[in-house]
Amino acid sequence: MNLTVNGKPSTVDGAESLNVTELLSALKVAQAEYVTVELNGEVLEREAFDATTVKDGDAVEFLY
């Protein structure tokens, strides 16, 4: 899956889609429990991480 992460191209191997929690784990995001996630310009509530799917071509920003 090809994404733009914090403005840079990134690839997650072996996945066509992941939820936000899985993406944080796959990318080994440090202190993931404290990060705010913006997906395609929309800031996500932490409670929505498990239910929100990240797909090929999406833009993700991790805000600390």
Rank of each mutant, 00 (worst) to 15 (best):
M1L: 12
M1D: 03
M1Q: 03
N2M: 12
N2S: 11
N2G: 06
L3I: 15
L3Y: 02
L3V: 08
T4A: 05
T4L: 13
T4G: 04
V5H: 02
V5C: 06
V5P: 02
V5E: 02
N6Q: 05
N6V: 02
N6K: 02
N6G: 06
K8F: 10
K8Y: 11
P9R: 10
P9W: 11
S10C: 15
S10N: 09
S10I: 15
T11A: 08
T11P: 06
T11N: 08
T11D: 04
T11W: 15
V12N: 02
V12G: 02
D13G: 10
D13P: 14
D13E: 14
D13R: 14
G14Y: 12
G14C: 11
G14F: 13
A15Y: 15
A15K: 12
E16Y: 13
E16N: 13
E16L: 13
S17F: 13
S17I: 10
S17G: 08
S17A: 09
S17W: 11
L18W: 07
N19W: 04
N19F: 07
N19C: 08
V20W: 03
V20P: 00
V20M: 10
L23G: 00
L24Q: 00
S25D: 11
S25F: 11
A26E: 07
A26G: 04
L27I: 05
L27A: 02
L27D: 02
K28T: 05
K28Y: 06
K28M: 09
V29R: 01
V29C: 12
V29T: 05
A30Q: 11
A30F: 12
Q31L: 14
Q31M: 14
Q31R: 12
E33T: 07
Y34L: 13
Y34Q: 09
V35W: 07
V35I: 10
T36C: 13
T36R: 09
T36G: 06
T36W: 09
V37A: 02
V37G: 01
V37H: 00
V37L: 06
V37Q: 00
V37W: 00
E38N: 13
E38F: 15
E38V: 15
E38M: 15
L39G: 00
N40G: 02
N40R: 01
N40F: 02
N40A: 01
N40P: 00
N40L: 01
N40Y: 02
G41M: 04
E42I: 15
E42P: 01
V43T: 09
V43D: 03
V43W: 07
L44T: 05
E45D: 13
E45G: 10
E45Q: 12
E45H: 12
R46S: 06
E47G: 12
E47S: 13
E47L: 08
E47F: 08
E47P: 07
A48D: 11
A48T: 08
A48C: 13
A48M: 12
A48G: 06
A48N: 12
F49P: 01
F49H: 10
F49V: 02
D50N: 10
D50R: 05
D50F: 06
T52M: 06
T52V: 10
T52H: 06
T52N: 04
T53W: 14
V54D: 01
V54H: 01
K55N: 08
D56I: 05
D56A: 09
D56S: 12
G57M: 05
G57H: 05
D58L: 03
D58I: 03
D58K: 01
D58G: 01
D58Q: 01
D58R: 00
D58M: 04
A59V: 15
A59P: 01
V60G: 02
V60H: 02
V60M: 05
V60F: 09
V60Q: 01
E61M: 10
E61R: 15
E61T: 12
E61G: 05
E61Q: 09
F62K: 03
F62A: 02
L63G: 13
L63H: 15
L63F: 15
L63Q: 13
L63A: 12
Y64A: 09
